[in-house]
Structures are given as structure tokens and as C-alpha cells.
């Protein structure tokens, strides 16, 4: 009934301005927002909370995806069941990397940037050695296939629809976002994490094991990237350079949103995802990407602390 009403309303003003494709585009934009939020979340921890310029973030996503490939090839495991394994494996690797590399470059952001870039090359090379450069494919669970039809026309063909898997991505992204927010702002562990970034020496004096907190925080951020890798692995093929596609987007999300509060990451993801979808509808996909990247450069230029950060008094 409601459906019919909406239809007649939409088609009544059909002359000139088409609203259905725009809604469609907005909905597919929501799918992009889910991916952006998922990939940006890990970076919001490693960069936002710890201030580490992590250019190997994309490679942790790739590692998570390969954990899923490995588990599926060996045990024929369901995609959802591999999520904890992806989290654990990438978190452990992240902890080891924090211990051996990141910790040593503390307070030298440009060196950290360079080291993580080298690390990303190494991780790609190692995975290529282990799994070869061949494209791998992951089976997405059958109960997540299919589309959710929001609006159908008279013949029953879907006008506006979104695939269940996209909804699943958004769901996971929001769930992880809430868990992370709770961890950061609701637990004593999160308070310690924030304390260490705000004033390392003071935190140390108050008896916080700063090096352990550092390691834990970095490992958690990498683990989130691993989950992102698992969830995204069935969208496209899995290959060693896959992380590169997500790296720049994740960075843009975090930088746009600002690193002061976690909510900035959500806002950045929504802003970039939706504007990307709308510009892509009006012009074309590559042009949309170029315009969004240029817009992000302008944002960094005028507000390096991010759009959604409360201005602090100097």
C-alpha cells in the first residue's frame, strides 16, 4: 500500500527530473560508506589514537583477506566464522610489527611513514611468495546473496534495491564502530589508550604500562583492518596488491573526518561515500574520484585537523 503510494508520488513528477535513479545512487552510496567506514576504522585507531602514519594499512586488509582464503581452502569454513581468525592473525602480526619497527621510530612521523611503506612492500612480497600472485576467490555465504527490494514497479521489477551483502558490510562496520567507541570511551583500557597518547610521560608516572598499551592499541587497529579484509574479500578477487586500492580511500576518510573523535571517521565516510556516489551519477566514476580527492586536498589545506573536530584554543 505504502509502496504504491510512494510510486504514484514518484512518477507524478516524472517530467524532467528523475528521482528514482538518484535514490538508487544514494543507496549504492550507502554501500560505499560501509566499505569506507570498515577500512577507515582501523586507521582511526592507529593514526587517530596513536598518531602513527601507517601506510601498511592496506596490507593488513590484504592479510585479513588471505586468512579467509587460507581457512576456506583448508577447512572449507564459512566466511563469517573466519572473522575471529582474521582478527587474531592480523592483530598478532601487528603487535610484532609494533614491537620491532613502529616502537623504534617513535616521535619521527616521516621515518614511520617511510618504514611502514617499506613494510607494505615486504608484506606484499611475502604473501606473493606464499600464495603466488594468482587471483583468489572467496565464497560468500549463500544466505547473504540476493537483493533487498525496496521499491518495485508494476511488473515486479526492482527499481531500488540493495544487495544483502552490502547491508551486511554496513552492519559489520557499524557494529565494529560501536564496539570500538565503547572500548575507547567506556572502558578503563580505552582511557589508558587515550591517556598514553595525550601525555605519555604522565601516563607512565601514573603506572600505566605504556609500551604494552601501545602494542595493544596498534594490534587492535591492525585486527580491525583484518576484519575489513575478510568482509571485503568476497566483493572482489583477493590478490597481493589489493590493499593498495583501499589505502588512499581509508586515509582520505580519516583525514577528512578528523582524528579527534571517533565519530569523525563515521562522518568522513558518509561524506566521501555519498558525495562520490552523487558526483558519479552526475558525471562519471573516475571524474568523481578525482573531484573527491581534490576536495580532500582542499580540506586538508584549510582544516588539517579535519572537518569534524572542535577547534581547540591554542
Amino acid at each position: 500500500m505504502l509502496n504504491q503510494l510512494a510510486l504514484t508520488y514518484l512518477f507524478a513528477q516524472n517530467s524532467g527530473f528523475q528521482i528514482v535513479p538518484i535514490i538508487n545512487q544514494l543507496i549504492s552510496g550507502v554501500g560505499i560508506v560501509g566499505i569506507l567506514l570498515l577500512t577507515g576504522l582501523g586507521l582511526a585507531i592507529t593514526f587517530g589514537v596513536m598518531g602513527i602514519i601507517n601506510l601498511a594499512h592496506g596490507e593488513f586488509i590484504m592479510l585479513g583477506a588471505y586468512v579467509t582464503v587460507f581457512m576456506q581452502e583448508l577447512f572449507d569454513m564459512d566466511l563469517l566464522l573466519t572473522i575471529p581468525f582474521a582478527f587474531l592473525v592480523t592483530a598478532v602480526i601487528g603487535a610484532l610489527i609494533e614491537l620491532t619497527i613502529i616502537r623504534r621510530l617513535h616521535g619521527r612521523p616521516l621515518e614511520t611513514l617511510l618504514a611502514t611503506w617499506g613494510l607494505s612492500i615486504v608484506l606484499r612480497g611475502v604473501i606473493k611468495l606464499l600464495f603466488t600472485a594468482q587471483l583468489k576467490y572467496v565464497q560468500s555465504p549463500s544466505y547473504l546473496s540476493g537483493n533487498l527490494k525496496l521499491l518495485t514497479n508494476e511488473q515486479g521489477l526492482p527499481l531500488i534495491s540493495i544487495s544483502h551483502y552490502r547491508l551486511f558490510i554496513i552492519g559489520i562496520a557499524i557494529a565494529l564502530f560501536l564496539i570500538t567507541a565503547y572500548l575507547l570511551y567506556g572502558t578503563s583500557l580505552g582511557r589508558k589508550m587515550r591517556a598514553v597518547t595525550q601525555n605519555r610521560d604522565m601516563a607512565k608516572c601514573l603506572g600505566i604500562n605504556t609500551s604494552l598499551v601501545d602494542m595493544g592499541t596498534f594490534a587492535y587497529g591492525c585486527g580491525l583492518a583484518g576484519i575489513a579484509g575478510t568482509v571485503l574479500s568476497s566483493l572482489k578477487s583477493v590478490s597481493p596488491p589489493m590493499g593498495q586500492d583501499y589505502l588512499i580511500d581509508a586515509w582520505m576518510v580519516v583525514v577528512t573526518g578528523g582524528v579527534d573523535k571517533l565519530i569523525g571517521t563515521l562522518a568522513g565516510a558518509v561524506l566521501i561515500g555519498e558525495s562520490n556516489a552523487i558526483i558519479a551519477f552526475l558525471l562519471s566514476d573516475p571524474v568523481a574520484r578525482v573531484i573527491v580527492l581534490l576536495a580532500v586536498i582542499v580540506i586538508i589545506r584549510y582544516r588539517p585537523e579535519g572537518l569534524f573536530t572542535v577547534q581547540k584554543r591554542g
Binding site: 616521516l110 611513514l113 578525482v290 580527492l293 581534490l294 589545506r301 588539517p304
Partner: peptide, 29 residues
């Protein structure tokens, strides 16, 4: 555009990444 602002070193590197990515996408398209 960049250097007349208060943008610091690391952000300039990220901007350079964005420029390279944007221009590459543009030339390919």
C-alpha cells in the same frame, strides 16, 4: 596552495599521494 598554510610535513606527504592518485585516475579516464 599547500605551503602558504599551516599544513605540516606528514599531511603534505598524504596530499602528494592524493595528487598522484587523482592525476593517474584522470589520465586513465
Amino acid at each position: 596552495f599547500i605551503f602558504t598554510s599551516r599544513v605540516s610535513g606528514v599531511y603534505i606527504t598524504i596530499i602528494s599521494l592524493a595528487i598522484a592518485s587523482a592525476l593517474n585516475t584522470f589520465f586513465v579516464s
